[in-house]
Design a protein around this nucleic acid. Structure first.
Lengths: 210, 210
DNA sequence: GTCTATATATAGATAGAC
DNA sequence: GTCTATCTATATATAGAC
């Protein structure tokens, strides 16, 4: 049994609860009792609940953003002509590697991302563009290369439709996986879900302009 | 100036605030001050915040569900072979008619739906299936007819991806429309957004099975 | 049905002993 | 760094006068 410091215990408990219940519905008392630490330690280590939320997200983004940048750069370096499906395949490994980084890391990260967008009234979007704008731009650029028939604006919208599919599904993935088990006797895990959603969004993004 | 009763004033204020800020972040005090009614009237008319949330959703679902059922039934009656894009076109009129039913009704409804799914930990899903299960099943049935190459399970997942695209985009539509204006000098309204998302989800849903 | 006043619970945050 | 105890604000909900 390794010793985990208080700061990490708080982050671990907070990310699970935030992902499951959302930010507003998760009190500091719930987090600290789950983490088995003292209530006051949250403010000591993080200053406020808002800063705790940022720290939880940053821990994932600091792993995910460089990983995605790396797979995208490999794709760019490898060949001239970039194929649509390859672009989205670039997401798979960085997303799934979060599952070995943290228990259920992929689901947690995507849930947090979705909740952050919907609950924070735009603050998260600003935070991500400010701190991780480089890889967002790179992803945009590569999608554009793969879809020369689409305008920047059309790509802007379609990438948001994509984001919606992914974060909404992952945000309810626990419930959906249970339903799939009950109704279809199907065992789906997060990896299976990602492999289902990639063809869906790839087809949507590269569909002919209206 | 027509006279609006207290109950309706509360519903009108609540739906706007719930759609913009989410359920947990919207207090009864905020609702009643916006509605210019007394705080105690919420409990008098609705019993509790939870029942108010249900009433807000029910007001939309009671309009939307029969309208969708009607357009789907027309499609079934009209012809033998059902085309994929026609199925999703069945959504357009029932969704847009909410905009004349209530100010920004389409956006509000889809925001509430998305937030309900993500914030209520499955209660809303149960509520919808219990009270409006008939039209959900009908929609599922028609999608299946239009996509005989897909299994029920595959359709189950793809319709959730679809739902995610729609509710996530609409839930942030105000911010996204602002960004589109700033970055692309594009004027997009809710109708334009729906006409953008329909081809996206239609392509995704009917894409070849993996 | 609508109001004031208040009961009751819970939230985030902090002071100060150890 | 960690604890107990507590401050302060705000939440939902209700009792009872009008």
């Amino acid at each position: 049994m390794q010793k985990i410091d208080t700061k990490t215990k708080i982050l671990n408990a907070a990310e699970q609860l935030f992902a499951e219940r959302g930010f507003a519905d998760t009190s500091l008392r719930l987090i600290t009792s789950q983490a088995e630490v003292n209530l006051a330690s949250v403010n000591y280590h993080f200053g406020s609940k808002k800063e705790l939320i940022q720290a939880v997200l940053a821990r994932y983004l600091d792993v995910f953003a460089p990983a995605l940048e790396s797979t995208l750069q490999s794709l760019i370096d490898k060949q001239e002509r970039i194929d649509q499906i390859q672009v989205f395949n670039c997401l798979i490994e960085p997303l799934l590697s979060l599952d070995s980084y943290r228990h259920q890391g992929t689901t947690v990260f995507l849930s947090l991302l979705g909740r952050g967008y919907l609950e924070s009234q735009g603050h998260l979007r600003w935070y991500i563009m400010t701190n991780y704008g480089k890889v967002v731009s790179l992803f945009n650029h590569v999608v554009r290369e793969a879809n020369p028939h689409l305008s920047s604006e059309e790509i802007f919208w379609r990438l948001h439709f994509t984001l919606g599919s992914v974060v909404f599904t992952m945000g309810s993935s626990k419930a959906l996986i249970d339903i799939a088990k009950a109704d279809f006797n199907a065992d789906v895990d997060i990896e299976g879900l990602i492999h289902r959603v990639i063809p869906f969004i790839a087809a949507g993004v590269s569909s002919p302009a209206k």
